[in-house]
Amino acid sequence: NQASVVANQLIPINTALTLVMMRAEVVTPMGIPAVDIPRLVSMQVNRAVPLGTTLMPDMVKGYA
């Protein structure tokens, strides 16, 4: 099973992602693959992402 990107903290809307905000976890359903974490750094979320939420492609501006 491939790990997905999960929020390590509450990420407010329009926040630029940093490594500290994300962790890799095997979850269902799968979200953004953990291998993409370096690519996500400095991209912004388009909604508030609660702690423990799996990041989906439509939550990150410019990802999809």
Rank of each mutant, 00 (worst) to 15 (best):
1 N>L: 14
1 N>D: 15
1 N>E: 15
2 Q>F: 11
2 Q>G: 15
2 Q>A: 15
2 Q>K: 03
2 Q>M: 13
2 Q>H: 15
3 A>L: 09
3 A>Q: 08
3 A>Y: 07
3 A>E: 15
3 A>I: 06
3 A>V: 08
4 S>N: 01
4 S>H: 01
4 S>I: 01
4 S>C: 05
4 S>V: 03
5 V>S: 04
5 V>I: 13
5 V>C: 11
5 V>F: 02
5 V>E: 01
5 V>H: 01
6 V>S: 04
6 V>F: 02
6 V>D: 00
6 V>P: 00
6 V>W: 02
6 V>M: 13
7 A>Q: 01
7 A>R: 02
7 A>P: 01
7 A>K: 01
7 A>M: 05
7 A>D: 01
7 A>V: 12
8 N>P: 02
8 N>F: 12
8 N>L: 07
8 N>C: 05
9 Q>W: 11
9 Q>I: 12
9 Q>K: 08
9 Q>R: 08
10 L>Y: 08
10 L>I: 13
10 L>E: 13
10 L>N: 13
10 L>G: 09
10 L>F: 10
10 L>V: 13
10 L>Q: 09
10 L>M: 09
11 I>T: 01
11 I>D: 00
11 I>P: 00
11 I>H: 01
12 P>G: 13
12 P>F: 08
13 I>E: 15
13 I>C: 12
13 I>P: 11
13 I>G: 10
13 I>R: 06
14 N>F: 13
14 N>V: 03
14 N>Y: 11
14 N>Q: 08
14 N>C: 07
15 T>F: 08
15 T>M: 09
16 A>N: 05
16 A>K: 04
16 A>F: 12
16 A>Y: 05
16 A>P: 14
17 L>H: 00
17 L>V: 03
17 L>K: 00
17 L>R: 00
18 T>V: 09
18 T>M: 08
18 T>R: 07
18 T>A: 07
18 T>H: 10
18 T>N: 03
19 L>W: 08
19 L>R: 05
19 L>H: 07
20 V>F: 11
20 V>K: 07
20 V>Y: 14
21 M>N: 05
21 M>K: 03
21 M>Y: 10
21 M>R: 03
21 M>F: 07
22 M>W: 02
22 M>E: 00
22 M>N: 00
23 R>E: 03
23 R>Q: 04
23 R>P: 00
23 R>H: 06
23 R>M: 08
23 R>A: 06
23 R>D: 04
23 R>L: 05
24 A>C: 06
24 A>Y: 10
24 A>E: 11
24 A>Q: 15
24 A>P: 12
25 E>T: 05
25 E>S: 06
26 V>C: 15
26 V>A: 12
26 V>H: 13
26 V>W: 09
26 V>N: 09
27 V>D: 02
27 V>M: 15
27 V>I: 08
27 V>S: 10
27 V>A: 09
27 V>T: 12
28 T>N: 06
28 T>L: 04
28 T>G: 05
28 T>I: 05
29 P>T: 13
30 M>R: 03
30 M>Y: 14
31 G>M: 02
31 G>W: 02
31 G>V: 02
31 G>R: 02
31 G>Y: 02
31 G>P: 00
31 G>C: 03
31 G>F: 02
32 I>L: 10
32 I>Q: 00
32 I>A: 03
32 I>W: 02
32 I>R: 00
32 I>K: 00
33 P>A: 14
33 P>H: 15
33 P>S: 15
33 P>V: 05
33 P>R: 04
33 P>E: 11
33 P>N: 14
34 A>D: 15
34 A>L: 03
34 A>P: 06
34 A>M: 05
35 V>T: 15
35 V>D: 12
35 V>N: 13
35 V>I: 09
35 V>A: 12
35 V>E: 15
36 D>S: 07
36 D>F: 05
36 D>K: 04
37 I>A: 06
37 I>V: 11
37 I>K: 04
37 I>S: 04
38 P>R: 04
38 P>M: 06
38 P>L: 07
38 P>V: 09
38 P>W: 07
38 P>E: 08
39 R>T: 13
39 R>G: 06
39 R>Y: 14
39 R>D: 04
39 R>K: 13
39 R>C: 10
40 L>N: 00
40 L>W: 02
41 V>F: 10
41 V>P: 03
41 V>H: 07
41 V>W: 05
42 S>M: 11
43 M>S: 06
43 M>K: 09
43 M>W: 12
43 M>D: 03
44 Q>S: 15
44 Q>N: 10
44 Q>Y: 14
44 Q>F: 14
44 Q>K: 06
45 V>H: 00
45 V>S: 04
46 N>M: 12
46 N>L: 15
46 N>R: 11
47 R>E: 14
47 R>Q: 14
47 R>G: 10
47 R>L: 08
47 R>H: 14
47 R>V: 09
48 A>I: 11
48 A>M: 09
49 V>D: 01
49 V>H: 02
49 V>W: 02
50 P>K: 12
50 P>R: 10
51 L>C: 15
51 L>Y: 13
51 L>K: 11
51 L>I: 14
51 L>H: 10
52 G>V: 02
52 G>Y: 08
52 G>N: 12
52 G>S: 13
53 T>E: 07
53 T>N: 14
53 T>D: 14
53 T>Q: 14
54 T>S: 07
54 T>V: 10
54 T>P: 11
54 T>E: 02
54 T>G: 03
54 T>L: 05
55 L>E: 01
55 L>Q: 00
55 L>H: 01
55 L>K: 00
55 L>M: 12
56 M>V: 08
56 M>Q: 14
56 M>F: 06
57 P>K: 09
57 P>D: 09
57 P>T: 05
57 P>V: 12
57 P>M: 09
57 P>S: 13
57 P>E: 10
57 P>R: 06
58 D>Y: 10
58 D>R: 05
58 D>Q: 11
58 D>T: 13
58 D>L: 09
59 M>S: 07
59 M>K: 02
59 M>Q: 10
59 M>R: 03
59 M>F: 12
59 M>P: 00
59 M>W: 13
60 V>I: 13
60 V>R: 01
60 V>T: 02
60 V>S: 01
60 V>C: 03
60 V>F: 05
60 V>P: 01
60 V>Q: 01
61 K>Y: 10
61 K>N: 13
61 K>T: 11
61 K>D: 06
61 K>M: 12
61 K>H: 13
61 K>C: 08
62 G>S: 14
62 G>I: 05
62 G>V: 05
62 G>Y: 12
62 G>H: 13
62 G>K: 11
63 Y>L: 12
63 Y>Q: 04
63 Y>S: 03
63 Y>F: 12
63 Y>E: 04
64 A>Q: 15
64 A>R: 06
64 A>G: 15
64 A>F: 07
64 A>E: 08
64 A>L: 15
64 A>S: 15
